[in-house]
């Protein structure tokens, strides 16, 4: 149970960081692709840590939903003074496609982590 809570928090951070990386790409020091790879490393770890993949999938699904709501709320808070050029570079379509792709990628990464886990 403790493990599930810990990895749910880790994946909430990962998803939330990716959403904000899409929005704040030019403001953060690391490139968006590197953040994606780092978050995939984290989800690999989720798959690696659980004995059943169903648990990993629960963690990913739950944290994806929570991070989505959290990001939605926080965008309103952080971007009160929205800069016009940020809005121009940000299209809803690109964000949703990237997110869907990213969710699938994390699930796959976690599954690979689960698959290549050494078993006694």
């Amino acid at each position: 149970m403790k493990k599930i809570v810990f990895f749910t928090i880790v994946m909430i951070i990962a998803y939330h960081a990716v959403v904000f990386e899409l929005l704040l790409n030019e403001f953060s020091p690391l490139p968006a692709s590197l953040v994606w790879i780092l978050s995939l490393v984290l989800s690999w770890w989720v798959g690696h840590e659980f004995g059943h993949f169903s648990k990993a999938l629960w963690v990913l699904g739950l944290s994806f939903v929570v991070a989505g709501i959290l990001s939605y709320v926080l965008i309103g808070y952080y971007m009160k003074e929205t800069l016009q050029f940020v809005v121009q570079t940000l299209t809803m379509k690109a964000v949703s496609v990237s997110l869907l792709l990213f969710f699938t990628a994390t699930v796959m990464s976690a599954f690979f982590g689960f698959m290549f886990k050494p078993r006694q």
Binding site: A17, F27, S28, V41
Partner: peptide
């Protein structure tokens, strides 16, 4: 990986 993700996020929000 976790530290880099968190730091990048914090720095991005702070700079923005």
């Amino acid at each position: 990986a976790l530290t880099l993700v968190v730091m990048n996020y914090t720095a991005g929000v702070f700079v923005y």
